[in-house]
Structure formats: C-alpha cells, structure tokens
Write a protein that binds this DNA or RNA. Structure first.
Lengths: 204, 204
DNA sequence: CTTGCAAAGTTAGTGGTGCTAACTTATGTA
DNA sequence: TACATAAGTTAGCACCACTAACTTTGCAAG
C-alpha cells in the first residue's frame, strides 16, 4: 500500500481510484458499510472531498467497485482451495466452503458489500457476471462429484443447497447470531458433514 | 394504522413511539435500511425532527426497536407454522423454515434489520433473548424429531445446520443473488429435502 | 516548441441528516 | 390549585453527498 501520510508530489494523484478503493476497504471493515463515508475515504487518500466524484459517479458506484474487487478475490480463493484437493472430492467441496467462510470472516465488511443489496447492485451486469463466476466454481466441483454435466438440474440444485448452508453460516457468524445458541466445535467437520449429507455421498 | 395526514388535535401526540416504529417499518421496506432517516420517519408521523429523540436515544435504538418487534412476529409465525403439523414431523420442520422464508420475503428490510449487525445489536441482552426464543422453536422441533432432549449436542448441531440453509436461502433470495444462477422449482420441496437430508430421516 | 484540450484536481456552496440545548405546553398527582 | 415531569417545539452545530465553477497538469497535434 502506498504512503497516505506524506503529501503527494504532483497536483495529479496518479493512483487515486485504487487508493480510494483501498481506503474504503479499511473503513468498511472498521466502521461497517453504513459508518463509511466518501468524505472520510477522500481524507485518507489525501485529497479533497470532491475528488472521488471524478472517478465514481456516486457513493454506491464506489461501493460497487469495492464489491467487484472483493468478488475477484473470493473467486480466486475458492478456485485455489478447490485445486488443492482431488477434483470432485468431498474435501474439495468442503475446501471451497472453507475459503468462502474465511473470506467472510477475514473481511466481513466487504463480504456484506458483496452479498448485500447495495444500491444498483442487482442491475449491474458486470457484477452479475462475477457472481456467476463464483457460483461456477461450486458448480464445477459438484458436477465432478456426482458425475453429471454442470448444467444438470440436480447439480444446480445440490450446488445451491450447499451454497445456502455456507452462506447462512457466514452471515450468522459475522453478525454474531450464534452467541449463546450454538458454538460450533469444528468448522471443517461441519463443512464436510453438510457436503456429504447434501451430495448424498458417503466418502471420497 | 392511524391517519398520518390530518393534524393531531392535541400538543401531545399520545402514540408517537408506536407510530414511529410503523413509519420506520415502511421506510425500511421501501428505501432499504440505509435509505431510511429518522427525520423522514418523524415527518411521516407528523412531528418535528427532534421529537423521536424523546422516545429513542439515537437512530440505532429506533432501529433496534423495529428489529425487536420483528423478532416477535417471526417467533410467532414459526411457532404457529410448527403447530399446524404433527410435532417433530419433517413437515413441521419444513413449515418452520417456510415461515422464516415468508417472513424474509414479505419484509426484507425488517429481516435485514433483525439479522444484520445494526449498531449495538450484539450487546443488547433483550434482543439476544428474543433471538434465543426464535432458535428455541427450531430446537424443540428438531429435538422431538430425533427423540433427544433440546440441549443434546446433536440436536443443537442439526438445528444449526438447518438454520444456516434456510437463513442463507433467505439472504440469497432477498438480495437477488440467484438471478441467472439457479431458479428454484419448488421451495417447499427444497425445504423438505434439506430437512430430511440434514436430519437423516427418510420419512414422516 | 507551442498551443490547446481533456483529465483530474481544487474551493465554495446547497440541502439533508443525526443529535443537542433551551424553551414551551400539557398532564397527572399531592 | 401548584408543580414536576413527560413530550412536544425551534434553533443550531457538525457532518455528509453531491454539484458547479474554477485551476492545474499532462499529452498530443500542428
């Protein structure tokens, strides 16, 4: 990350867009998606409060850029996790889930941004595409696991069921809704168990 | 709902607290939890923008009140749904899930308020308690289904797994993350299937 | 090399917001 | 009937999103 304290040498910043995204990422984690302000992000990047609007049309667009960058990281993390296990194995499925959970826990603010209904989120084809890219990772793993093509209805349905579980677990965890209700003994075991029970496979 | 247009007769409103909560419920559904403002809620209730602070210490407290009221409704809905089916049956479990989903879909704004990490949400014992009350409905049903006491670790673990699925499905639905990825053919079938596969019961 | 233009900064300003302080009015109780 | 208190009011502060108009800079064409 570049230095935010020393004043920049030139009138033009040169890297403001990227630096704003970085600043927003930090703010969203420390103050929550609501507590963040465009003005504060600009302050952190060392520019005036109007400068961000040269790069982003409004606040939601800035947040969407952060979400977009987050989805790239999520996709890569899931892909990498899957590739560390035999294709189509339960371990691969569970690892994808674990990557998803790790992503949520390590950056709950960005996770909420990615999966919340931020303004204009649902009608941005660019984001839709990235979302589909993430789901495709799961889809491929499930397809291999049950020996069917990725567009098979059963594959889609099973992949979705897995997704709901992991997604729900993420939100319940980061929103602290499990306190006093259920303390999970071992997350990896949980992920493995739901994978097997939903895919209906006993092992490997 | 009382009339919001005609000016009130007396200086004292008489029912401002309840009316503010009602106004916030509406606003949160139409403009989202972020788009809502205390000032607008006050306007709708026909009072000055400072009036709400006589009843709620700050914005988060007002939102928490709405969440609290929402949790009551959710609990009642789940309880009622369960009671329409034989105790401990798969149908009862699925019905609880269906009530949860219906609640989310019919009021996504309040749902997000209830299950999001609104400021101070996690350190409000009153809300914690109501959350536990909701989970207890699931816990009882699962306990009956597998013939174990409600504090049994397996019961807790199975109930949590079910919760994650339904919770995840709710968020993915209201946040429109399923578009172009998976169109669910029949929700009740989905709920029944995950119930059976997670509880490991074949029928009844 | 100059000139001009577009990109990317700036300041200043508007209207809305959360919240507080100080004031006013109504109400229930001694 | 007096009065403390609950529940309204207006005025005002600091902050925010965003816009308009201006300025600086880098680049590219002549």
């Amino acid at each position: 990350m570049s230095d935010l304290t020393t004043p920049r040498s030139s009138y033009h910043h040169g890297d403001l867009r990227a630096q704003l995204i970085a600043a927003v990422r930090e703010l969203v984690e420390t103050h929550g998606p609501d507590g963040f302000s465009v003005a504060e992000a600009a302050r952190r990047a060392g520019v005036s409060s109007a400068a961000p609007y040269k790069h982003f049309k409004d606040r939601p667009e800035l947040l969407r850029a952060v979400a977009s960058e987050g989805m790239d990281r999520l996709r890569d993390a899931m892909q990498a996790a899957a590739s560390r296990h035999p294709a189509g194995s339960i371990a691969a499925i569970a690892a994808i889930g674990q990557a998803y959970v790790d992503f949520a826990r390590s950056g709950p603010g960005v996770f909420r941004l990615v999966f919340g209904l931020t303004e204009g989120h649902d009608q941005d084809p660019h984001l839709e595409e990235k979302g589909a890219g993430c789901f495709a990772v799961v889809l491929r793993a499930v397809a291999t696991a049950i020996g069917q093509p990725a567009d098979n209805p059963t594959v889609k349905s099973r992949a979705y069921a897995l997704w709901t579980c992991v997604h729900g677990h993420c939100f319940l965890t980061i929103d602290r809704k499990t306190k006093g209700k259920f303390e999970m003994p071992d997350e990896w075991t949980f992920l493995t168990e739901i994978s097997t029970s939903i895919l209906g496979v006993s092992s490997t």
